[in-house]
Nucleic acid binder design. Structure first.
Length: 266
DNA sequence: GCGACAG
DNA sequence: ATCTTGTCGC
């Protein structure tokens, strides 16, 4: 889904002489959490119809005709979240892959790094492509999934580490779960900041359900099940591949994506 | 009710 | 995530 186009279609509805707000457009998209994404997109396009607030309420337009696209994505997340498998569903682990994406505007540079159980790199690759969806908290996968799917074609690692959350998500369907489900591969979510949930000891809960683990003391990372792997096994894999704060497959993928971006940008 | 919110 | 220099510490 091209959400940038959806924003344009809304803004085009604003009559001459009338104005709207970033929040009103976000609500028309289906979720006001998208307000800052709307602002960032429109401000970068010399927009003259939409502002943070409208002084003269008689000029305020918010009667958008819309299908609330984000509402549909939310419903999809809720539906697919029921299909996520949170138990081990794999044989022996022979390799672990990490994937990450770096950006230059809306050009994405994705990187894939696969390592054997001795933490040696056995495969590296990158892809470059445009993205048509802004970063919106809790809808992150709709921005990066096309890049991850392209990277993952023909790859067969035992487990994948994804830069973001698994079921540690308001609708229990973060990017790691989304990716694992679409590719039917065991996946682990690894985030550097807490998106939601309550911390009790080292575990993280949402409505009383255990959905993640806080790993590390000073600058912790937040681990959650993506798909087809238990939290216990996820933690075992993380520990085995942690040389620094970020597990090695992900750290290597992060560096590779950054390098790919810089080389294409000079 | 209100605000915050993975990358 | 990105924009950026130096700097503290092992």
């Amino acid at each position: 889904m091209d959400l940038y186009r959806e924003i344009e279609l809304l803004v085009e509805q604003i009559p001459d002489g009338m104005f709207s707000t970033y929040k009103a457009v976000a609500i028309a998209l289906g979720d006001e959490i998208a307000e800052s994404a709307v602002k960032q997109f429109l401000d970068g396009r010399e927009n003259r119809n939409v502002f943070s607030f409208i002084k003269d309420s008689s000029c305020f337009f918010n009667k958008f005709k819309t299908t609330f696209p984000l509402k549909k994505l939310r419903e999809e997340q809720l539906e697919l979240s029921r299909k996520v498998i949170t138990d081990d569903d794999f044989g022996e682990i022979e390799s672990v892959a990490g994937m990450d994406v770096a950006y230059a505007g809306d050009t994405a540079y994705g990187a894939y790094v696969e390592m054997d159980t001795e933490c040696r790199i056995i495969k590296r690759k990158t892809v470059k492509m445009k993205v048509d969806f802004p970063y919106i908290p809790t809808y992150f996968s709709y921005r990066e999934m096309p890049v991850l799917n392209e990277l993952f074609k023909k790859e067969k690692p035992s487990v994948v580490m994804v830069d973001g959350n698994g079921i540690l998500h308001p609708r229990q369907f973060g990017m790691a779960s989304h990716f694992g489900f679409l590719n039917s591969v065991p996946s682990i979510g690894i985030a550097k900041k807490l998106l939601c949930g309550k911390i009790d000891g080292n575990y993280i809960y949402i409505k009383g359900k255990k959905v993640g683990f806080m790993h590390g003391k000073e600058k912790p990372i937040y681990i959650s099940v993506g798909h087809k792997i238990s939290l216990e096994s996820s933690l075992a894999v993380i520990k085995k591949f942690c040389r620094y704060r970020i597990p090695e497959p992900l750290r290597q993928a992060h560096m590779l994506a950054k390098t790919a971006k810089n080389e294409n940008n000079l």
